[in-house]
Write a protein that binds this DNA or RNA. Structure first.
Length: 422
DNA sequence: TCTGGGGTCCTAGGACCC
DNA sequence: TCTGGGGTCCTAGGACCC
């Protein structure tokens, strides 16, 4: 039988902020999305105030002020670095690990001896993460990933230890009976409604549904969930795969009407996407560029448009891709609109090694370009992001997103290290 | 005034081929 | 009234996740 553990960091972004500002322990915290738009993370104290996940900040500003809620802009350099430390620590306890998201990982525990006490081990892991990093986690253990997700949910909500084991059949019966289907991993809003219409309301009812029937009406994805709920493992551990698409997009701090700043923004996003692309040793074969006005303002004139442009040959060259992206933008742009957001997606990504040169391309030139990119990447890695950048990205960047309440990058930036005053 | 960003997988249907 | 059968590939759109 397979055994999975899901390790999930509690209120991850809020916990990261607390590590470096411990006076915030036991106080309500919220962390905002990019552009300080929505609330994307809440401490338990903030949840208790009834602040929902994903809510627009402006609707809850009053509640936050009245209750002394500490508000943070997103600090992804900090969260990303802390995440890596958590994952590196977990690998120390179990090498078979799937990093599922910035704050979650599955561990495959099959190979531990039969009478090895996994609950004790989970407690040990939890304790060590707390000592090493100050990040609290919950751990759910079960024979399938879907059940491990549920176990984790229970661990977080209704245990004092932060650990829950769903391998026990009797336990499972009670938990699944009480769990509404929309809380199952992979069952979203739409599927819940459709299943409810058939009288399937709880995880237990879905588990006991006929897999053949489910497959016919809901597809293979939901059929797998049924089997997983029955303890039959269908979803294995997935290793890191290079991305097939790489997006870079942002809402603007204030609306843009002119082509020039829009072009700077697009160049900036293209640059960011290319850096991610080279970091995973890949090349792209096409780009998707889009611009849009503010959809939340129906009274203003609306315009959104996008286009796809294939490349002559796969590339990761920032200069080339900026040129193509700007070209797309020239065709998409219409004056007379207030643009709120723009972005690029690099598509049809393939590995660097896989090389098929254009018959007519000048190889020599291409090699030189690749070397140039390497030098730029190295300088920016050593001296800080944006030490060298394309003039096309602009210098003032008035369109930059808002991040008015960002904490220091305590772990990745020399100028912002934690200071201890003795 | 203020409303995020970045992904994946599956399926149905059309185009095309022999 | 009759107008094959079987297959692949590609794409758009839907659904989901954190």
């Amino acid at each position: 039988m397979s055994i999975y553990a899901l390790v999930d960091c509690n209120n991850f972004y809020a916990s990261c902020e607390r590590v470096f500002q411990p006076y915030l322990n036991n106080k309500p915290i919220v962390v905002l999305s990019n552009n300080d738009g929505c609330i994307v993370a809440r401490s338990n104290e903030a949840k208790a105030l009834g602040i929902p996940m994903g809510a627009p900040m402006h609707e809850y500003r009053k509640i936050c002020i009245n209750n002394n809620v500490k508000i943070f802009s997103s600090n992804y350099q900090l969260y990303g670095d802390m995440s890596q430390r958590v994952m590196d620590s977990l690998k120390h306890f179990c090498p078979n690990i799937e990093i599922y998201s910035i704050d979650e990982a599955f561990l495959q525990l099959d190979s531990f001896e039969k009478n090895f006490d996994l609950i004790k081990y989970a407690l040990h892991i939890r304790q060590k993460l707390n000592i090493w990093l100050g990040i609290p986690v919950s751990i759910g253990i079960a024979p399938t990933k879907t059940l491990a997700k549920i176990a984790n949910h229970v661990a977080k909500k209704s245990t004092s230890t932060g650990i829950f084991d769903l391998r026990d059949i009797n336990q499972r019966e009670n938990i699944l009976t009480a769990l509404p289907i929309n809380e199952i991993w992979g069952i979203g809003k739409r599927l819940s409604l459709k299943l409810n219409e058939l009288g399937i309301n709880t995880a237990k009812q879905l588990r006991d549904a006929n897999p053949k029937y489910i497959r016919k009406h809901f597809g293979v994805v939901v059929e797998r969930i049924v089997l997983e709920l029955n303890g039959i493992s269908c979803l294995g551990l997935e290793m890191v795969k290079p991305k097939k698409n790489i997006t870079s997009s942002r809402s603007f701090g204030k609306p843009i009407t002119e082509l020039q700043p829009l072009s700077e923004a697009i160049s900036h996003y293209a640059t960011r996407a290319c850096i991610k692309l080279r970091n995973q040793s890949s090349k792209a074969q096409g780009i998707y560029v889009f611009i849009t006005t503010n959809k939340h303002k129906p009274n203003e004139p609306q315009y959104r448009n996008s286009m796809i442009q294939g490349f002559v040959e796969p590339t990761a060259d920032t200069n080339l891709i900026i040129r193509i992206a700007k070209n797309c933008l020239d065709q998409l742009y219409r004056s007379g609109y207030k643009y709120k957001k723009a972005g690029v997606i690099l598509t049809d990504i393939i590995s660097n090694r896989h090389k098929q040169n254009d018959l007519f391309s000048e190889n020599d030139l291409q090699d030189k370009r690749e070397k140039l990119m390497q030098v730029v990447d190295n300088i920016n890695a050593q001296m800080g992001t944006n030490t060298i950048f394309n003039a096309a990205q602009g210098i003032t960047r008035h369109w930059r997103m808002r991040e008015e309440m960002k904490s220091n990058r305590y772990t990745t930036c020399w100028d912002e290290l934690l200071q201890v005053v003795v």
